[in-house]
Computed example of a mutant assay.
Amino acid sequence: MNLSDLGDRICIVGPSNSGKSTLANAIARKRGLEAVHLDVLHHLPNTDWEPRSRDEFIALHDAAIAGERWVMDGNYSVCMPQRFRRATGLILLDVSTSASLLRYFRRTLFETKRHGALEGGRDSVKWDMIHHIAVVQPRNRKHYSAMFDELDVPKLQLSSVSAIKQCFQDWGLTLS
């Protein structure tokens, strides 16, 4: 599949720490799209990932999807229906739980800058996040797979870190 086949409003979904934000930024640079990171919209800046009110988040989300050219990364099922109605393409990252955990520890312990980071925030290892990655997300895989199958837009499923790297190479994407 060519990157242009996904259109000008691309959703990237998948487990936490699977590379959604990194891929979104790379696609945004390549295609001249706005990169929208749902984690940034969902959380207050300059906090330790404190969520906004549900109404404020939904308003920010809906304003972002009203645009004509974007690549949006994140899940947040409360907003998926309206996001998917606007999407022209979908990418599902379906990396293993162990890969997500490894990426989580690497980014919280060693990276000071990352794609999709919260302004003024600093990542730190949190038991709730480890539990989310190791216990909750594996249960969500069936939901993501079913959702992926139901959508009638151009779509691509990348089921490993090596598949994501190959996609970067095939599409001529860069990390910065």
Rank of each mutant, 00 (worst) to 15 (best):
D5Q: 13
D8R: 09
R9M: 06
R9C: 11
V13L: 15
P15G: 14
S18Y: 04
S18E: 04
G19C: 10
N25R: 10
N25H: 13
I27N: 03
I27Q: 04
G32A: 10
V40F: 02
H43W: 08
L44Q: 14
L44Y: 08
T47H: 11
T47K: 09
E50T: 15
D55G: 11
D55H: 08
E56K: 10
A59R: 15
A59M: 10
L60E: 09
H61F: 14
D62E: 15
D62G: 04
A63K: 13
A63R: 15
G67E: 12
E68D: 15
W70A: 02
M72A: 09
N75A: 05
Q82D: 12
R85Y: 01
R86P: 01
R86L: 06
A87F: 06
T88L: 00
G89V: 01
L90H: 00
I91F: 02
D94I: 00
D94E: 05
D94G: 00
V95Y: 00
V95M: 01
S96L: 01
T97E: 07
S98H: 07
A99D: 12
Y104I: 03
F105P: 04
F110V: 02
E111Q: 13
R114D: 07
A117C: 13
G121C: 09
D123L: 10
S124Y: 07
S124A: 14
K126G: 01
D128A: 12
I130Y: 10
I130M: 12
H131N: 08
H132E: 09
I133A: 08
V135A: 09
Q137P: 00
P138N: 04
N140T: 01
H143D: 00
Y144F: 15
A146M: 07
D149I: 00
D152Y: 01
V153L: 12
K155A: 09
L156W: 04
Q157W: 04
Q157E: 11
V161R: 11
S162V: 06
S162M: 07
A163D: 13
K165Q: 13
Q166D: 15
Q169A: 12
G172N: 11
G172I: 06
L175F: 15
L175P: 00
